[in-house]
Design a binder for these strands. Structure first.
Lengths: 290, 290
DNA sequence: TTTAGTTACGCTATACGTAACTATC
DNA sequence: GATAGTTACGTATAGCGTAACTAAA
């Protein structure tokens, strides 16, 4: 269970090919073969079927573990190295697109005005990747947005010890295409929409909805990106329903936004960070959460 | 960041000695010295100060990561091996002491009556160790008890992908020593007790209370075991207050049990398991959750 | 001076690449 | 027969133990 072998294993599984993995990792194909053999010998189980290369049942199980394991390993290394890192003048802020809502943007602007020496680089990413970005040290601060019950914390992928703090909570709306029979309603109950077709997006993962509401929420179209505009366009074209914070749906933007009456859910934004680098990071964090 | 070196590092840190770690791990002291040196060279940072042996700031940071990392590694191995394990006739059930409450015990008895071929070995352990026990495959099923808001899941230490299902929820009482001024009350608000002295026990961790209620809850005496009787005895002797499910406090047992009015909290029991071994395990799980 | 971690050095086992082999499409 | 993974084998090196060394109590 050497992480080195684990990395090789996930690479082979991803490519479905020893040779391709060898090329990516800078080894010969023979070395990859030997590494996989070593891993299989260690566990005493075949992990891959050959020709075509695909994981066995045990291999699939291992894949589920390997990715988060390797992530945590990288996170641990990054965290330890951070304790000895140079002070940075530039603060790297990563956020999910919906996390930068009007309230958060205003606080950011306020902090920028009050802290003239603060330099912030902002990038957005999918919610499911944000924690990894912060944990691995590619961002100093993370603003994660997600769906949760009021004042409940978000369920973030576990990437090691991290500090989280609630920032804002905003009510959710169901995004309906024009002409939808329910478009005129003042509010909607999600329980009445479990049988509708929904967009599967990282911004509103259906698995999370099933978790919070119950079974149903069949996926219409799956969109793997994190762009709100694209989601709105897809929703307007009737590919499926989705849930967004009210402020993210423009008035008269071709879709109808109907508030969610039950269950009580919000779009919650949380600030997360590992050890903060010295400097303005703590000030910015205070400005965002305070 | 080889797990092998990580294991050596945590062992050395725990013992505060290279030689003691060498003895435990079956190496020479020289090998340990070389392993620590290799780890420090890999990270480019000193992790331990010598004579006396104690972790540096970076070392302390690494220790926080290393334990859960190694746990997950063992859990991954156990989980993969489980896919090829022989069917077991004996089902190993691990539970926190408070998880085996009257309702759960009755369901267990019912399952035993309906499934004559079911053989169950039950062991108890501290709540914070239960997830690890199940993840590492030392138990097939786990019954975890803990304090949570009603219908909220427990916060279990993350030891990899695991299935959880709620089993029971029971109201909580404050355990007061005889003669306590509040003993006569019909109910109590925890917010009024934040300044009292509390028992620090794995069954009712004060960190969790601070999380759910707010600051305060100073620790009187810390008890590291998982024995309910001991906790009751300590509470009766006035070492501090604690929270227990109502069914765990015997009537006329030398202590007063006063229901908690606010915030709304319960003692929740959850069933957790990784991949279930073939056989009666699924039946028992169904009997407990159904 | 004793105790405890480090360094030098030799040995072995591991892990890689080259190249020959083999099985599958 | 071409493609792709395996096996054999030679070499480099990483990791351990023995033993000599060094620094702190």
């Amino acid at each position: 269970m050497d992480p080195h072998l684990l990395t090789t294993f996930v690479t082979v599984a991803r490519h479905g090919s020893f040779s391709a993995a060898a090329a990516e990792l800078g080894y010969t194909q023979s070395a990859i073969s030997q590494q996989i053999a070593a891993l299989e010998a260690d566990l005493g189980l075949p992990l891959l079927r050959r020709r075509p290369v695909e994981p066995t049942a045990a291999g699939r199980r291992l894949l589920e573990h390997a990715e988060p394991l390797l992530l945590r390993l990288r996170a641990a290394r990054a965290d330890v190295l951070r304790t000895a890192a140079e002070p940075r003048h530039l603060l790297r802020l990563a956020a999910t697109p919906l996390a930068v809502n009007p309230a958060v943007a205003a606080r950011l602007a306020g902090a920028g005005a009050r802290l003239p020496r603060l330099e912030v680089a902002l990038r957005t990413c999918r919610p499911d990747r944000l924690a990894a970005l912060v944990a691995e040290g590619h961002a100093d601060l993370g603003l994660a947005g997600g769906i949760a019950a009021p004042s409940d914390p978000l369920r973030l992928p576990d990437a090691g010890p991290m500090t989280t703090a609630g920032v804002t909570e905003e009510s959710l709306v169901v995004v309906l295409p024009p002409g939808h029979p329910l478009a005129g309603r003042a509010s909607l109950r999600l329980a009445d929409l479990v049988d509708a077709r929904w967009l599967q997006t990282p911004l509103c993962p259906l698995a999370r909805l099933r978790d919070l509401v119950g079974d149903g929420f069949a996926a219409g179209l799956e969109y793997e990106g994190d762009d709100v505009h694209t989601v709105l366009t897809l929703a307007a074209a009737g590919h499926g329903l989705t849930l967004l914070p009210a402020s993210a749906v423009p008035a008269g933007g071709g879709v109808h936004a109907v508030p969610v009456a039950a269950p009580r859910l919000v779009h919650r934004v949380e600030l997360l960070h590992a050890a903060l680098p010295p400097g303005a990071a703590a000030d910015l964090a205070a400005a965002l959460t305070g």
